[in-house]
Computed example of a mutant assay.
Amino acid sequence: MTGMIGRRGALALGGAALLGKGAAGQGAWNPDRPLRMLVGFPAGGVTDVIARVAAEGMAARLGQPVIVDNRAGAGGNIAAAQAARAAPDGHTLLLATNNSHGANPALYQNIGFDPVRDFTPVALLASITNVLVVHPSLPARNVAELVELAKARPGRMNFASAAVGAAGHLVGEMFKTRTGTDIVHVPFRGAAPAQTEVVAGRVEMLFGTLQTVLEPVRAGQLRALAVTSLARVPQLPEVPTLAETVIPGFSADAWFALFGPAGMGEGVTARLNAAARDALADPALRARLTDQGFAVHVGTPAELRAFVPAEIEKWGEAVRISGARGE
């Protein structure tokens, strides 16, 4: 990823935060009722995993339950729009991703919110790399060989993704553009069927999250050629980054961050940031994420505010290249 999470773990776990000013909650603040954390994806998925770990840890530090509310649909837009309309009193949070605050403004004609104007940044929580995997029968043992093979077979190799406009689709389009290859996108209805087709050898390759592809890679069902983070990951230390192979500077990880509605005050934002930071510094909670492939790096509100516009541009460019349109 670019900017503040360009290297895994590069974010400081503390530091002064230049917080946005608002009407609510100046000075010390504690919630007086349960908090709601809106999540734009179904229970059990990658986003839901980090939401529930963060909610558990923050609840212990805030003295109130933090209820995860899954409002799936439109790539996270439904949950984000609800969060944007909530009162800025600290009791409603959004677990945002590089969908709602990255690709979606370009992918959908009307997302129902402005990802910059309508939110108060609280903290980036974590990221997870995407992994370029191929079927083991493919005669390409590294990225350079894959690019050479694709150029020798223009329009005759395929890559799978969970859906049109999904992260795996957009990363694939970035890869094609940066390598000058013609690889055909094949969308499926979810990450599981997309990966199943690659494991079966009916589709040659995909970009899947580390959490989902790790076990098939370890079992020899898939061959990992590269990761999309700027640094290698401890779970696959022998697998190079795309940046160190054929695409210098390339990064395209999935990320997860907390936002409140616009106008949330300094005291509220600072308290929520501290709760998130302390929660994910807890060794047991942190391990529940790192064991599944997440890189935890809780940053300041100011860092998150500076980070989002660049992500909107990066993922938006991929959407424009792909010609994808949200449904």
Results as ranks from 00 to 15, higher is better:
Met1Glu: 15
Thr2Arg: 02
Arg7Trp: 07
Gly9Tyr: 07
Ala10Ile: 11
Gly14Val: 08
Leu18Ile: 09
Leu18Arg: 04
Ala24Ile: 04
Ala24Phe: 09
Gly25Asn: 05
Gly27Val: 12
Trp29Phe: 14
Arg33Gln: 08
Arg33Pro: 12
Leu35Thr: 04
Arg36Met: 07
Val39His: 03
Gly40Arg: 04
Phe41Pro: 05
Gly44Phe: 14
Thr47Pro: 03
Ile50Arg: 00
Val53Lys: 00
Ala54Ile: 10
Ala59Gly: 13
Ala60Tyr: 08
Arg61Leu: 15
Leu62Phe: 15
Asp69Tyr: 06
Asn70Val: 11
Gly73Gln: 12
Gly73Ala: 12
Gly75Tyr: 11
Gly75Thr: 12
Ala80Lys: 01
Ala83Thr: 14
Ala83Trp: 03
Arg85Met: 06
Arg85Pro: 10
Ala87Lys: 07
Pro88Arg: 05
Asp89Glu: 09
Asp89Lys: 07
Gly90Pro: 13
Gly90Asp: 10
Thr92Asp: 10
Leu95Lys: 04
Asn99Trp: 10
Gly102Leu: 13
Ala103Ser: 13
Ile111Asp: 00
Asp114Met: 03
Asp118Tyr: 07
Asp118Phe: 09
Phe119Ser: 02
Thr120Ala: 11
Val122Phe: 08
Ala123Cys: 15
Ser127Ala: 14
Thr129Glu: 13
Val131Tyr: 03
Leu132Ile: 08
Val134Pro: 01
Val134Leu: 03
His135Cys: 13
Leu138Tyr: 02
Leu138Glu: 07
Pro139Asn: 08
Pro139Trp: 02
Ala152Met: 07
Arg153Ile: 01
Arg156Tyr: 06
Met157Trp: 01
Ala163Tyr: 12
Val164Ala: 15
Gly165Ile: 02
Met174Ser: 01
Met174Cys: 01
Thr177Lys: 07
Thr179Trp: 05
His185Gln: 07
His185Arg: 00
His185Pro: 08
His185Phe: 06
Pro187Leu: 06
Arg189Phe: 09
Val199Lys: 02
Arg202His: 11
Leu206Gly: 10
Thr209Val: 14
Leu210Phe: 08
Leu214Trp: 08
Glu215Met: 10
Pro216Glu: 06
Arg218Met: 10
Ala226Lys: 00
Ser229His: 00
Leu230Phe: 11
Ala231Val: 14
Arg232Gln: 14
Leu242Ser: 03
Glu244Phe: 05
Thr245Arg: 03
Pro248Ala: 04
Pro248Ser: 15
Gly249Cys: 12
Ala254Leu: 15
Ala257Arg: 00
Phe259Asp: 08
Pro261Trp: 01
Pro261Tyr: 02
Met264Gln: 10
Glu266Ile: 09
Glu266Val: 14
Ala270Arg: 10
Arg277Ile: 10
Arg277Gln: 11
Ala284Lys: 09
Arg286Gln: 11
Arg288Met: 15
Leu289Met: 15
Thr290Lys: 02
Asp291Lys: 09
Gln292Ser: 05
Gly293Leu: 02
Ala295His: 05
Val296Ala: 00
Pro301Asn: 07
Arg305Met: 12
Val308Met: 01
Val308Lys: 01
Pro309Arg: 01
Lys314Ser: 09
Lys314Ile: 09
Gly316Val: 11
Ala318Tyr: 04
Arg320His: 09
Ser322Tyr: 00
Gly323Met: 11
Glu327Leu: 03
